[in-house]
């Protein structure tokens, strides 16, 4: 066997090992989310849809990761294009409602770590469930400033978003944990809620 072939086989094995490990971690996160929901009494407007949306987020991310050029990215810290993922995922969410819209114009070249992007999608699912319970519409805008990714969430019928936390504070434990994991923070402004977190 030539050295090139052997080296190539070793690289494929490494990618497979890391992907399997990551995938099992991601499945553990899905189970953890469900168990934390019970432990913290998080009640969803639509439990079935939340679980289904998380599974689709996981599927979309791995689809994109599979299609990405592994040589460009580190195997240990796989990156996925934010724009490609959000085009897929928010389009998927829009399949069941017209009351969600978004703007991605400033983030065409932004890549985010696979695990972080997955957490971000789970956070969006939480806000989408709040939207459904409020029978409201939501607009999400993504932007990047230096090494931080920001997204602003604007509910059409909420006049003062500074009061948003009070509206749902007893159901926030999951969101807080996910934002902590992202090393990010929430800011509550009159017109919007902003979530920002560091990216590579």
């Amino acid at each position: 066997m030539s050295n090139d072939v052997r080296e190539n086989q070793e690289q494929v094995k490494e990618v497979l090992d890391q992907t399997l490990h990551r995938f099992k971690n991601n499945l553990q996160t899905q189970l953890s989310l469900m168990n934390i929901e019970s432990a913290t009494h998080r009640k969803y407007f639509d439990d079935r849809k939340v679980v289904m949306d998380r599974i689709f987020a996981l599927t979309h991310i791995y689809d994109l990761y599979y299609k990405s050029d592994k040589h460009e990215f580190s195997v240990e810290k796989p990156l996925v294009s934010l724009q490609s993922f959000m085009l897929l995922f928010i389009q998927y969410l829009k399949g069941s409602t017209t009351k969600i819209d978004y703007e991605l114009s400033e983030v065409a070249s932004v890549d985010v770590k696979l695990d972080d992007l997955l957490l971000l999608s789970y956070i969006l699912i939480e806000f989408e469930d709040f939207r459904k319970s409020l029978e409201d519409s939501i607009f999400i805008q993504f932007s990047k400033k230096e090494k931080r990714l920001s997204l602003t969430l604007n509910y059409f019928n909420i006049n003062d978003h500074e009061k948003f936390y009070d509206l749902f504070h007893d159901q926030y434990k999951l969101l807080d944990l996910m934002v902590m994991q992202l090393k990010g923070k929430f800011e509550y402004k009159k017109k919007f809620i902003r979530l920002s977190f560091p990216i590579l």
Binding site: T29, L31, S32, N35, A39, M178, Q181
Partner: peptide, 10 residues
């Protein structure tokens, strides 16, 4: 992992 550690703690 904050989610996993919180779950185990619970």
């Amino acid at each position: 992992d904050k989610l996993i550690s919180f779950e185990i703690k619970s």
